[in-house]
Design a protein around this nucleic acid. Structure first.
Length: 741
DNA sequence: GCCCTCTTGTTCGAT
DNA sequence: ACAAGAGGGC
């Protein structure tokens, strides 16, 4: 194997240690993927291992694809049959095969976060719990935490120290699980949980897989959670040929249950484990690495590890402080143009930020300059209403028990079947153990349930029947078009004929063509396969890399990627590190610091860091100090004066006030105007309004003013009307006249 | 049941 | 700033 010569000593050792457990502690840019792919190629070519017996977990589908491609390139042959994918997609594969043992149908739906929130919401309604007391998000967070640790609804309550809230959470968890089961649906966590459950319970299946797979790989091991760890343990025989790769300094998913002790305890879990350290970095210049090392050294809970490189020192990392985020937006775009003129392609550059909402300002200026760019994640295509609607139709066609999907589209387009009707049917279905759609199907022959909208429901059932028939013969993209046509969905949008509706039609067309592409690539796959692969795609998976353009993404999204030029923006206290991490404990801050380390180590040649004193957030301007991470970088940072930093030095207090806070750019050219106040409403008599005054309202008749208070430019007046009760009105708009003082 | 308007929460990150 | 949800009128 001549290619082994490309490897350094540690990498080669990792490749050649083919038997037994191996932990590869791989620093950022240390050739981790290269090592793993060479190891797989080595196993197949030199050790005669069949790809069928290799199981590899990656973090994204894209990473899986890349690994597969690289192995094939090394071998010059296809490695079809190798099990490589994310934890979730591999679990789906197992579940589609053994769903029977879990009491699920093979066409189960997969619920994403927004589906989960809807399910929690319904659960709260079922249990009659106030959603002021039980916030959907925190309930879901609690359930997720249990699931990530493999704790079921029965086990989640500690009987010795439970309180009202914990008991209710346990109840909600239980009902939520039942609901998903009734809908023949699983959420993301379930995909792992159910497989663990299956393997725990069914010895045959466990033994089958333990014998089937001989070599195991886990990428990004520092980000595995307890349930993933259990899964690995269950699939592996006692002395596994298990190679895990990770970097404890890049653990950035504690918030979704990742347990850093998985990597720290690997040697304890597998006593014969060999640990190999990859510290030589092939990606970044020395200056960039120094900065990364310096920042991460401030963390206490870590294994010391220092990246070094043979590469040149490179350009110093630059830091710019702006007075306002808009200025940052603009200047970064200027820098991008400069870099481009120096010979970098736009696609060589990336803007990395802490939160998705920060992309907007950069997009505006990029667009203005006509620079191609791509936003990874954020406002997601697959989260758009019309996309979710069409997919909900497909889910319902595939899985008739999916009440959530049905509820989404039963009245879209309008069919005159509203909430009341739906509630009736659902309640009845609950009683007799049927899904909403099943009840609807049998409604005409049903004497017990009388529903006013029965005719409308029958029409809907006929429609679904028709579509199901078509689904049998048509390809997925054809089926989509049929759904859009037969339901009248497309017609409604066409008739609406607004900028928005045209946009929605375009999105639907894009979805149809995505289905076409999928079908070409996976000609054998069913509708269920298509739907699940859509739900399991990560943001990075969804972006095609062939297009040219500046990449915009969160630091989380940039994990595992690299760019010649990186702009790390918004380095401010309460932005990065995030406000919430500062309000909580030290562990959170350390995770933010690791995140910062990840961001820095994405850069190969040039890194530009920036912060803004003032930033528009939630629609208003807030002031923040530069991030503590900037201080921690110290001398290694070259502080470049900006126009505003120069001004700030001179008169910092003035500057904050003088910068215009109103957005000056509008890309559509349609500047929003505040509605002008109509002077006609300011009749003379209104000036006499005071608490206690008798007034007459056009609609409500006579009443008395109870209170009066300023609200912006307007005044809010509360009037008690005879027989009608209290009404809150805005003085300038309400058709009121004073009857007597 | 539908539509309009006002309120509320979002923005920490994501399979 | 913006979207989704709630609430009330029709």
């Amino acid at each position: 194997m001549t290619y082994l010569n490309d490897l350094n000593d540690q990498q080669r050792e990792a490749v050649l240690t083919s038997e037994g457990p191996v932990l590869i502690l791989a620093g950022a840019g240390s050739g981790k993927t290269k090592t793993v792919t060479q190891k797989i190629a080595y196993l197949i070519q030199e050790r005669g291992v069949s790809p069928y017996h290799i199981l590899a977990f990656t973090f994204t589908n894209k990473a899986a694809q890349e690994m597969k491609d690289r192995v094939e390139a090394l071998l010059g042959q296809s490695v079809q049959g190798m099990w490589i994918g994310t934890f979730h997609s591999i679990c789906v594969r197992i579940l589609r095969r053994y769903h029977d043992c879990l009491g699920y149908d093979g066409n189960f739906s997969i619920y994403d976060r927004s589906d989960q929130l809807r399910a929690v919401k319904e659960t709260l309604k079922d249990l009659n719990l106030s959603k002021d007391l039980f916030k959907e998000r925190s309930v879901l967070g609690a359930i997720g935490t249990f699931k990530n640790q493999g704790i079921g609804p029965e086990a989640c309550l500690d009987p010795t120290s439970s309180n009202f809230y914990d008991e209710k959470i346990a109840q909600i968890y239980k009902r939520y699980e039942e609901k998903l089961k009734e809908n023949n649906a699983m959420d993301f966590d379930d995909l792992l949980l159910k497989v663990v459950d299956l393997l725990n319970r069914e010895e045959d299946i466990r033994t089958y897989y333990q014998f089937h797979f001989n070599y195991f790989f886990v990428d990004e091991y520092q980000d595995t959670n307890p349930i993933q760890y259990q899964l690995i343990k269950l699939l592996c025989p006692p002395k596994p040929n298990l190679t895990v790769v990770g970097d404890n300094d890049q653990s950035i998913y504690a918030w979704r249950g990742a347990d850093i002790s998985n990597i720290l305890n690997f040697e304890k879990d597998f006593p014969e484990a060999k640990v190999i350290l990859l510290e030589q970095n092939y990606r970044s210049s020395q200056n960039i690495l120094n900065l990364a090392n310096k920042v991460i050294a401030h963390n206490s809970n870590r294994k010391d590890k220092k990246l070094w490189t043979d590469l040149e020192e490179g350009k110093k990392v630059e830091y710019r402080e702006y007075s306002h985020s808009q200025e940052e937006n603009k200047d970064v775009v200027n820098l991008i143009i400069q870099r481009r003129n120096k010979g970098y392609a736009f696609s060589d550059m990336a803007i990395l930020y802490r939160t998705n909402a920060q992309s907007r300002g950069f997009e505006e200026y990029l667009m203005m300059e006509g620079i191609p760019y791509k936003v990874v994640g954020g406002l997601k295509f697959y989260d758009r209403k019309e996309v979710k609607d069409l997919l909900a139709y497909l889910s319902l066609l595939s899985n008739g028990k999916d009440d959530l999907a049905l509820a989404r589209i039963i009245n879209t387009p309008k069919r005159g079947i509203g909430e009341a009707t739906l509630g009736q049917v659902q309640a009845y279905g609950q009683e007799i153990g049927q899904s909403i759609y099943e009840v609807m199907e049998g409604l005409e022959e049903n004497d017990q349930l009388k529903i006013r909208a029965q005719k409308k429901i029958s029409k809907f059932v006929d429609l679904i029947h028709l579509l199901r028939e078509k689904a049998k013969t048509k390809s997925i993209p054809d089926l989509m078009e049929t759904v859009l046509f037969e339901t009248g969905y497309l017609k409604d949008l066409q008739e609406e004929d607004t900028i928005e509706s045209r946009n929605r039609i375009e999105n639907l067309e894009e979805l149809v063509s995505a289905a076409k592409t999928y079908e070409e690539e996976h000609p054998e796959d069913s509708l269920e396969d298509f739907l699940s692969s859509l739900s399991l795609m990560s943001d990075v998976d969804k972006t095609e890399d062939k297009e040219e353009g500046v990449q915009l993404m969160t630091v989380h999204g940039a994990k595992g990627l690299e760019f010649p030029v990186v702009f790390l923006v918004g380095m401010e206290e309460r932005v990065f590190p995030s406000g919430r991490s500062l309000d909580e404990d030290e562990d959170n801050l350390e995770e933010e610091r690791r995140l910062c380390y990840v961001a820095i180590t994405r850069a190969k040649k040039e890194l530009y860091i920036s912060s803004a004193r003032n930033r528009v957030q939630y629609g208003k301007t807030v002031a923040n100090l530069p991030s503590r991470f900037i201080d921690e970088m110290g001398e290694d940072l070259e502080r470049v004066k900006t126009y505003s930093s120069y001004r700030m030095e001179k008169s910092p207090s003035l500057e904050v006030k003088s910068y215009p806070t109103s957005p000056k750019v509008s890309l559509t050219g349609d500047y929003k105007q505040k509605p002008k106040e109509d002077p006609a409403y300011h009749s003379e008599s209104k000036k006499d309004i005071h608490v206690g005054a008798k007034v007459r309202h056009k609609k409500w008749g006579l009443g008395m003013v109870v209170s009066l208070k300023d609200k912006g430019k307007d005044q809010e007046v509360v009037v008690s009307f005879e027989g009608k009760g209290l009404k809150k009105l805005l003085l300038s708009y309400a058709p009121l006249e004073v009857v007597s003082k």
